[in-house]
Design a protein around this nucleic acid. Sequence first.
DNA 1: AGCACGCCGACT
DNA 2: GTCGGCGTGCTC
Length: 825
Amino acid sequence: MYIDVILRNRGKFSDMLFTYKVPSFLEKDIEMGHRISVPFGNSNKPIEAIVVEKKNDIMADDISKIKIKEIIDIIDEKPLLNRDSIEMLLWIRNRYMCTYNDALNLFYPKGYSYTSRKIISPVKSISELTIDEESSLSNKERKILNEVYLNNDELQYDVAVENFSNYSIMKLKEKGLLKISWVYKESKNEKFVKYLYLEKSVDFIKDFIDNNKKIGPKQREVLEFLIQNDGTDFQTISELLEVTNVTIKSLENKGLIKIDEESIFRKNKSIYVTQQSEVVLNDEQKNVYNSIKQGIEDGNSKPYLIYGVTGSGKTEVYLELINYVLNQGMDSIFLVPEIALTPQTIARVKNKFGNIVGVYHSQLSEGEKHDIFREIKNGNIRVVIGTRSAIFLPFDTLGLVIIDEEHDSSYKSEKTPKYDTIEIARYMAFKRNNTVILGSATPSVADYKLALDGEYKLLKLLNRANSMNMPEIEVVDMREELHRGNPSPISKKLLSEISKTLHEKNQVILFLNKRGYANVMTCKDCGKVFKCKNCDISLTNHKHDGKGICHYCGYEEKIPDVCPGCGGNHISNIGIGTEKVEEIISNYFPNNKVIRLDKDTTKKKGKLESILSKFNKGDADILVGTQMLSKGHDFENVTLVGIISADMMLNYPDYKSFETTFQLITQVSGRAGRSEKEGKVILQTYNTENFAITNAVNYDYIGFYNEEINLRKAFGYEPFNNILRIVFSGKNLNMVKNNAFKFSETIKYLMDEKNYSIDKNILGPNECSIRMIKDKYRWQIIIKDYGIDIKYLKSMVKFICITKYNDIFDKEVEINIELNPNSFI
DNA sequence: AGCACGCCGACT
DNA sequence: GTCGGCGTGCTC
């Protein structure tokens, strides 16, 4: 029997499947998805590999061309990946043009390690050495041999080379006195818990305690405790009785207790416990619930798109559907955007389904991720709430995938492979017949079009669950504000609304899409702009830390008092960030507490929760924040939302900037008036007539959609065209530029050969709008697929960038290929 | 990417 | 006779 495997931890140079022979004694056990150990390369170094194919025969000319080795062993008892995962892995590699290993990493659970090391060991024992052999040894060789014998017949190869020399080791090998070989070690990061049990009957123990004077008081306590609570874990006992390991060991040695180690699953503690109220769906929610339930019964695999206004109660519908699916014996994955995965959301799901709920996100420790993976495989976790990577968790009986806030950009991975979670979910609906639900108050125009085209089943929730109206959005024209002589970024209108709200003992949210104090720092005397050392980006002033920080690479530098260019001391700030808004507002309302919520104030674990709960409890009156606060939070007492600058999003150089503007205004506005109190929104902008803003003000999603979709069509963007973006980057500008041009000439040649239109489809090469990141120059080429099947386009790009890589490009230039990227910056 | 192999120069 | 340093080429 033969197998095809993916080798772990190899570069793109060996991005292919390798064929191995399975020795007959392993044939029965080996399965697809197994982790195995295989010999690799000239040295037969043991490498970890994953089985992706089993076959009985291989082609005859393969045998003559390559020498096929036998695998060393199967590592785990059960396969790590199931067939579905392997199938999807291969699809992902193809779709997103990544390596086997990139794709594998999405599925491969954390917490496994596999290391191999090279050792030297003697061929014969010391007494078996002949006199001839003995006398042939040089001083150094004798030293090495002695060291090996002294060290339990084993020495780490690289240590030996360092201490002695490779030459002498090789000599010893030639003389047949030493052999060089590989050993490997494999381990799992699983937490084991010691449980203590009485080894003898209770009567025996009681008798023992009463009649044995030699037993210490601590040991006696433990025994008495165990009589009442047999099978308690060591941790608890040691905390309650203040005993140490020594006591326990001593009892074990006396044969009185037994220690059992069991692997347990690290449960993360939920901070919030909300009271569980009986959920009754309203008519609209019931309709949505029923039609999806009906669809599941009928075996419909077409994904659903729920367009539900903010506060319409999508989550209740999701939870009821998860419940329904559970009763059918199937599991669910519930995805939320990164910043929406708050304790409140988690608590809602946990309160409903209890300990079959797993939480999965990127901030978990490796051990925690490992546990969740294992508990899903064991069938103990049936519902997962998590961020995008949770979609790859190994459910065997998955029924439902929910993607909430489906428009959110965090569903597109920014790391290779740059997958789109929604595409993955659609694949699952299509290939595995899973029920997929996308939901949003502001669906992406691409997905809404797919719904209109009948690719999704469109369902709507048009009313708020509390039957309140959407808060009124009042636009303040900042141009007029300026003319009226108010240069402040906070308008008079917003100030008066804030004080009115505070007066009524309600709370305020102020939203600004930019953290830090000021966008740009410049010297008024010489005009110097403070820029990042590594990127072509101006530093953002973070006044609190006294630093200028680059938001791209994280580079920080201390802001000097005098300009390093001209020595002048008029360094000034242009533009505003959340830090400055916090400062201005605090000055205006010195008697009210202002807190700030952005990436800077929530860096530490648990900070996000504590700020949110502080605000929720009313410990602060005004919350200033970035889009972090736009997602799914329920603040009962917030009646005023201020959007400081809608223009900042609008002027972002990206084709999706209108869409993001519309989405953010709608989502942030949705934070106001979620309870019985009526809410209000003040929106400040210089672009009062932009359609993204006017439609958002009127809560007219359809109106926005109609205008935006026309623009997309006119310019050939998503969803009308697929776009491939190829970015070349490197330290040498000329080389980067040259490689980009080489690429474009090659692809133009290939496209021309097939009579594909070039002018319409190829944009560039151009310098990226951020021309340098982390000291690397960046050039890009954009390719659209007018009149070309994206499959052909991808195969051409792959041919150039992978097959012909060595012939065309310089090693120092990095090539990054992305399908339908989130932005073109 | 590793890893091995082979050739070269340098030092004792 | 010993030893380290690179450059090159391959991986079932």
